[in-house]
Amino acid sequence: MLLIHCPHCREDREEEEFHYSGEAHIVRPLEPENLSDEEWGDYLFFRKNPRGIHHEMWHHTAGCGRYFYATRNTVSYQILETYMVGEKPQHTADSAGASQ
């Protein structure tokens, strides 16, 4: 069971207070009508599902009710950082690769 730092509450809380809410940084197209079915389908359904560094969106459902992002290693389950919506991650697959 994960221990997750909510950047809004600024506390480490148990995983059972949170809901995983999918991949982070998926931006809704501004003009959906101008997209082909395939492009719209990519936005709707296609996700990275990487082995290793992954950016995720979490919801502090039983806490402050706010969404935030987390960088998590999907192999070790280590959470490298949590950060606010609108911010950029400090840790990325590239930076992790470079540091190893």
Binding site: H19, S21, V27, R28, M57, H59, T61, G65, R66, Y67, V85, G86
Partner: peptide, 14 residues
């Protein structure tokens, strides 16, 4: 529904 509203408000249209 509550979480859905918050999701769009917080992440897409702050």
């Amino acid at each position: 529904v509550m979480a859905w509203l918050e999701l769009w408000k917080q992440t897409e249209w702050p």
